[in-house]
Simulated scan of single mutants.
Amino acid sequence: MLGITHFGFFLVAVFLLNLTPGPDTAYIVGRSVAQGRGAGLVSALGISAGCCVHALACAFGLTALLAASATAFTVIKFVGAIYLMYLGVRLILAKQDAKPAEGADRAAASSAARPLRQLFLSGFWTNVLNPKVVLFFVSFFPQFVGAESEHKALAFLLLGAVFVLMSTVWNTFVAWIAGSVTQRFSGKPGMKKWIDRTVGAAFFGLGVKLATTTR
C-alpha cells in the first residue's frame, strides 16, 4: 500500500519509542502533576500537533534538508535547548500561593482559555524545537517506504498519521495517570513547590543535554 513496507515492525517500533521517556513525556508529566489531568491532556495535544509538523516536513522533504544542513541543525538545537531551560527556570522560580485569593474560582473560570492555550503552545514548541525528533523522522520513516514507490509523500503522511495517533493515545494515558498525583498533593503547597522544582530541574537538565547533542 503506497509502497509502505514492514508496517507491523513500524507499529512495534513506534510503541517501544513511546515507552522511552524524553522531553515530551517530561513536559506532559510535569504539567499533569502541577495542574491536573486537563493540563496534561492539553499538553499532549500540543505535542501531537508538533508531531504533525514533523510528519508534513518529512513528507515534503524539509526534514531531510534540515538533517543535511549543519547550520540548520545547530540553530534548532540551541533554540530548543534554550526553550526547555526557560521552562525549567520558570518552574523552579514559580511562587506558591499560601492561601487562595478570594474569588479565585471566578477568576480561574474567566481566564481558563488563556492558560490552556499556553500549555498547548508550550507542548507544541517543546516538540517542534527538538532536533532529535527531526532526525528521528528523517532517519526512521524512510526505512518503511520502498525506494520504488511512486507515492512517497502519501506514504510518509500515512506513517506520520499512525505515529501521531499512537503517540497521542500513549501521551493521553501518561497525562491521565500522572494527573492523579495532583489529587494526593492538593492543599499541600509545600509538596507542590518541591514537585515543581524537581520537574523544573529535569527540564533544565534536558535542555543542557539537548544543547550538547552532537549529530
Rank of each mutant, 00 (worst) to 15 (best):
L87E: 01
C52E: 10
A72F: 13
K193E: 13
K192A: 14
A155C: 08
S69Q: 04
V208N: 01
F173C: 07
N171K: 15
V53N: 05
A26H: 02
S69A: 02
S167I: 07
W125Q: 03
G30S: 15
S122W: 00
A94N: 06
A201Q: 10
I195E: 02
F163D: 07
P21C: 06
G190C: 05
T168V: 01
L65I: 13
F136N: 09
Q118T: 14
L84G: 02
G160T: 04
L93S: 10
A67L: 10
F120I: 07
A112M: 12
K95T: 09
R90H: 02
D24R: 00
A104D: 09
F203I: 08
F7W: 14
D24F: 05
L159Y: 00
F124M: 02
K77S: 07
L159N: 06
F173W: 07
H6T: 12
K188D: 13
A13E: 09
L16Q: 10
A108C: 10
A44Y: 05
F163H: 10
G46Q: 03
A94L: 02
G22E: 05
T126K: 00
A178K: 01
W125D: 03
V162M: 07
N127Q: 10
W170E: 04
Q183D: 15
F7A: 14
S149C: 04
F144V: 02
I82R: 08
F10G: 07
Y86C: 07
A211T: 06
I82Y: 04
R90K: 12
R106N: 13
F141S: 02
A72L: 15
L165M: 13
E150F: 08
N18D: 06
A94M: 06
K193N: 07
L91H: 09
M85P: 04
L56S: 11
R114M: 13
S111G: 09
T214Q: 15
S186M: 09
Q143R: 13
L16V: 14
V162A: 14
G3C: 07
F203N: 00
G22R: 01
L19E: 05
F156T: 05
A202E: 03
G80P: 07
L19A: 11
T168W: 11
F60P: 05
L87A: 00
L91Y: 11
L66H: 00
R37Q: 09
G3I: 04
A101G: 12
I195T: 01
L41C: 02
T182M: 11
D97R: 12
L158H: 05
G40W: 04
M85Q: 07
G146L: 06
L129H: 08
A107T: 12
A107Q: 10
G123A: 07
G80I: 12
T71E: 12
V164P: 03
D105C: 02
V199N: 01
A161Y: 08
L66A: 15
F60A: 05
T214G: 14
V164S: 06
E150K: 12
L154Y: 10
I195L: 15
F124Q: 08
A107Y: 06
F204W: 08
G50R: 01
H6C: 04
L84W: 01
K192R: 14
S139L: 04
A202C: 14
R106A: 15
H54C: 09
V42M: 00
F10H: 02
L11G: 06
G187H: 09
W194Y: 15
